[in-house]
């Protein structure tokens, strides 16, 4: 029987959504698995998060200390290495924290590591079989690893259904004393908030969002004209911001804005999970892409295989005529 340990990320004591998704993921590994939540932090925030988790997990390990007040992966990894048993199947989130923590943790625990897991087929003996995506979601792959001596996996936030109301009646076990030496060569200083831009894309009901398919900076104008005709606002994917063609505040995605429009026009956007992760509230998604196999067509409501540089001006013309 697998012994699964799920790391619960939280903000000021409020668990992130992935906490409830682990439960579904763990059941897919082994429906009879013993699943333990691990919460780290300091003071009231730690107690609040650990307390909340007792409704969902039979056992909740809390590890507290001043050094753990901010989730510095370099510090948390040390504590986990001291606390996790040798055969632990560790689950973390595939987000900016998990990417910081998990690869090194797997090396220190000497267990195999699989990141960004989007589905789990199950455990056959000690062989764990999971699904992950490659090439920006254009293909999926089945991946196996021998978890006899444990494993480290990170799951994609949002890929598993969250567990509904919990009644696990679990207990909090304080393992702060076992965390060991928590000095690290990386010291957290501060968090700088993202700048607020001129346009607030989160307020618009309709977004004309451009991706790398826009090809050149001059072409942004084409999108602006379409947006104007539709009474919409222009947003974009990350490469457009990296190239400084639009300001950061127009970027949709996990490292940009979270938007909840009624209609989302994805123009030359492939549909990476980091981009789609910023689109909430189930808008009507229209995707225009010249590649009929672009992953965005799997999640869009309406798909059109066209060159956006030709399609957008024609659509703008027709909309203006209305």
């Amino acid at each position: 029987m697998a012994r699964i340990f799920a790391y619960i990320p939280h903000k000021e004591g409020a668990a992130e959504d992935v906490a409830y998704e682990y439960i579904t993921a763990a059941a897919k590994i082994d429906p009879n698995a013993q699943v333990t939540a691990i919460v780290t932090g300091h003071g009231d925030a730690l107690d609040k998060a650990a307390g909340e988790m007792t409704a969902y997990f039979k056992e909740v390990i809390k590890i507290g200390g001043e050094e753990l007040a901010y989730p510095n992966a370099e510090v948390i990894r040390k504590a986990l290495v001291n606390i996790l048993p040798a055969d632990a199947v560790f689950m973390g989130p595939h987000n900016t924290f998990g990417m910081d923590l998990a690869p090194g943790l797997s090396v220190k625990l000497d267990s195999p590591s699989v990141s960004d897991v989007v589905d789990i087929e199950g455990m056959d003996g000690s062989t764990l079989k999971v699904v992950r995506e490659v090439l920006g979601g254009q293909f999926s792959t089945h991946v196996t690893c021998d978890a006899a001596n444990g494993a480290v996996i990170t799951i994609r936030p949002g890929a598993f259904e969250p567990a509904e109301s919990g009644s696990a009646g679990g207990e909090v076990v304080d393992k702060s004393g076992d965390a060991g030496d928590l000095t690290a060569k990386r010291r957290f200083l501060e968090v700088l908030e993202a700048e607020i831009g001129e346009v607030d894309i989160t307020k618009s009901d309709v977004l004309v969002s451009v991706g790398r398919g826009i090809e050149e900076e001059e072409n942004i104008e084409i999108a602006q004209e379409l947006a104007e005709a539709m009474g919409a606002v222009v947003s974009c994917s990350r490469p457009i911001v990296d190239a400084h063609w639009l300001e950061k505040s127009r970027q949709v995605g996990t490292s940009g804005q979270t938007v909840k429009p009624k209609v989302y026009m994805a123009m030359g956007i492939s549909g990476s999970f980091q981009h789609m992760g910023g689109i909430k509230g189930k808008p009507f998604i229209v995707a225009v892409n010249k590649n009929p196999k672009a992953p965005i067509f799997q999640v869009a409501d309406v798909g059109i295989v066209e060159d956006i540089l030709e399609f957008m001006p024609e659509l703008a013309e027709k909309v203006k005529e209305l």
Binding site: S113, V134, F139, S140, H142, T144, A287, Q298, V299, V302
Partner: peptide
């Protein structure tokens, strides 16, 4: 220790109406 078995195109339900 991590083995990649195959590549496949995920079938995520209906997909977009083209």
């Amino acid at each position: 220790k991590v083995k990649r078995l195959d590549y496949f195109v995920p079938d995520l339900g209906e997909g977009a109406e083209m």
